[in-house]
Design a binder for these strands. Sequence first.
DNA 1: CTAGGGTTAG
Length: 788
Amino acid sequence: MNSPEFIRTVANRYASQLQLCYPQNPASFSLAKAIHSHMIASGFHPRGHILNRLIDIYCKSPRIIYARNLFDRIPDPDIVSRTSLVSAYAFSGNIKKAAEMFDETPLSIRDNVFYNAMITGYSRNEDGHACIKLFRQMLRDEFRPDNFTFTSVLGGLALIVDREMQCKQMHCMVLKSGAAFIISVLNALVYVYVNCALMFEARKLFDEMNEKDELSWTTMVTGYVRNEELDAARELVDGMSENLGVAWNAMISGYLRHGRYKEALDMFRKMYFIGIKMDEFTYTSIISGCAHAGLLQLGKQVHCYVLRTEGKPTPDFSLPVNNALVTLYWKCDKVDWAREIFNNMPVRDLVSWNAILSGYVNAGRIDEGRSFFMEMPERNHLTWTVMISGLAQHGFGEEGLKLFNQMKTEDFEPCDYAFTGAITSCAMLGALENGRQLHAQLVRLGFDSSLSAGNALITMYARCGVMEAANTLFLTMPCVDSVSWNAMIAALGQHGHGIQALELFKQMLKVGILPDRITFLTILSACSHAGLVREGQYYFNSMHRLYGIIPGEDHYTRLVDLLCRAGKLLEAKDVITSMPFEPGAPVWEALLAGCRTHGNIDLGIQAAERLIELMPKHDGSYVLLSNMYATAGRWDDVANARKLMRDRGVRKEPGCSWVEVENKVHVFLVDDTVHPEVQSVYNYLNQLVIEMRRLGYVPDTKFVLHDMESEQKERVLSAHSEKLAVAFALMRLPRGATVRVFKNLRICGDCHNAFKFMSKVVGREIVVRDAKRFHHFRDCECSCGDYW
DNA sequence: CTAGGGTTAG
């Protein structure tokens, strides 16, 4: 009944229907399924090119399995259907299946296209070696490579860096094959040279090309950019007759990566004036550049421009742009703006979540950061790193370490950045043993050349009081940067080695590392701790003159602190009145502290009043004020200050000290009754005091800030948290081991005196890190020389 | 062929 004629007509109809299923048509898969089921319903058995066509469409759909099912029912599948499947498997990343299909295809039916499909597959799966191997096989099997072969095998070769010989061989082969006049082949060859960083050869080939297309230009420009030859790239772009957005984008991002913000912004402006079409790449780059350089105003302008210019952006467009905006705003201290962008995003991905998480965490809004962390639909190692470092830096060292361990059990092997966060936690906590263990793990995992981890380790050792280890690390790190130098200078400063800190600074200049604003903060602090007033003033004055760094409020605060400690209170007052900012709380705090040390009650009261005005909820100002009254014996005023504090609901941060013993951190509060061994600590302390008195120790009761009987005062003194922690450590650490104790506030004057005698009595070194600096007590002396 | 998220120093 069905004549061959009729079948042919039906087949032609199906064939023309299947023509509608081309890859760009989003409906092609469902359309093909519909046509296919019509075939089944009407009893039509597709063969030959119609069958191949159907297989090909399924191959390019998300359901390769449909294609495979059809394929498996063909008794003798031809090379066309095989080629479709090989491409499909390779394209979807299933390179093993592709290779299987390839291998089981008899040599007799293979053709060029078939080899090309497999080579392209390898190159798509980033296996350059397999590309070349198959290319050689193809030559052995006596097939002639064509343009497509060269293009894809060159693409594969480009994946293998630094293969100069192979590049040259390939070049020769291209020349011999006569494919040298085909642009796509030459472009691929240029790309290979670029990828092997053979820029001279790449450029030579590029210049010799008779004809160039857009890809030729972009390959050359981006090649220069990727090989860090920005100026060569720029020259090429400036000489381009047509304006290719991609090349401009590459330029901009290249400039940004090298911190050449000005040139990047100039290109961006030029793009605008010439009228070169900008795309999402342009916007994201430039916004991200603004974020890094802290250019809020410009970033906002670009944001507005994007909103005006791009009517209804697709998710592909808006997602990266919005991600860059989130980062821009939080880096410019506008976390709430960042949040608004984040909230209004039609689609978000992991990058968006990580960006907003960083924003909250960096702003110290840890509670909100935590809840973002918990809510996140997925996390990666970056998520963990952000959270761990954020916790460490905002005083949640223990939680940071906990998270670091949790990360190991839950998700990924920590990378060196995650280690960096954990090490910072140890630095904050003073957990030396824990830090040492992390260091050991780092070495074992081969991360010991990591710059960030190394820098964190310098700080960790320094902040745990082990200067030698910090110094050795600094000297043996395979490479160091300005952060390392800053860390080391800061370490010396905190330990009171002002002269050495300045020496190191000079050495830093000598090796050609430019100081930044942080360098100057650290050297000003170093001078302040060591009483190097003239030096500090000199460097303060030189920072702008010699290095173009404009002193910020924080630098002025250090200068005021430097003068105040040295008793030059009036000079400090002059700095405050002449500085180009409205003096903020830190400046007044420094002045107040100086007034207290040098007993200038009048100026001190002025400072304290300003401070309390600025920060009515800040405990420090009330405490300093009342301490000052107490020093002068004005107990009524002490009471008044304390009452004011109580009335305003301000609570004094309780003194708290801790010490690591046998890998465990033991915490002591003032007048502690919580620690399980506190009674024996008190007993031991009393014994020590008896021996200390024999050497001349007299408790200095002027550090007791309440009015009471002197005997009672002495009891209060001996209950200070730092004394308890030191005594505990002396009891429990191995004989002769250095004691390292940490305190959240500044050390008390009597404790400072007591530890000198104590170090003599027990013949051991006692190291105390307080809120500001280190004190090393040894043989009745302190490293600070009583200047603190 | 070009873009978006991290770290260390005070």
